[in-house]
Amino acid sequence: MLRARFAEQMSEIHKALVEGGQVIESALESASQSISTGKGFKKTAKYEHKTDEMEDNIESLCFHLLSTQQPVAGDLRLISAALKIISDMERIGDLCRDIALLSPEFSETMDTSKIMLMCKTASEMVKLGINAFVAADTNLAFQAIESDSYVDSLFFELKNDLIKAATEHPHLAASAMDFLLAAKIAERIADHACNIAQWVIYALTGERRGAYG
């Protein structure tokens, strides 16, 4: 095969993105645990460091290939998408750490089921996006994108719950603010997961998000 070394480096990017997806899932799981226990910041922060390292590695490899191999077509789409995807993954890592940082401030009386569900759904979205990438199946990526509106609706429900709780129990207002902040962060994580799925579709088909709304 021509350009065997290049093909090998392209598969390194592929592999690194799959690994990145797994790290993100672990970071989200760790953030979820911290919501329920109020502990686990250090563990979540480790995953955040890991995503920073992954971003550096993937960026270096992509920049190297862009400058030396002049990739086109599917190769160029994969490299471009990888640069965008790893940026979203790195942001998710940061946001998971932020949730873990806030979680000790939550009152024990708060119902965590909705925010936990938001984190779980975001994690599934990342998984679907990466599976779509591995299986070259855009249907899985579209499923991930569709889940974003579900996370949005959970956020608005939770916001209303918190306004009600803070109104009825003013002593919970400060905790409710932190809780709302964490919920907003979880909603942002789902947005980044949605971005990942959109870039996977671009890598597979060349279609930008404007093409499918």
């Binding site: 990739p71 599917g74 190769d75």
Partner: peptide
């Protein structure tokens, strides 16, 4: 279009250096 999303696999394989 040809250099970002060619329709035919043979075009893609040629421009990406898979053969030629």
């Amino acid at each position: 279009k040809i250099f970002s999303s060619p329709k035919d696999k043979r075009t893609e394989d040629y421009i990406t250096g898979r053969f030629g």
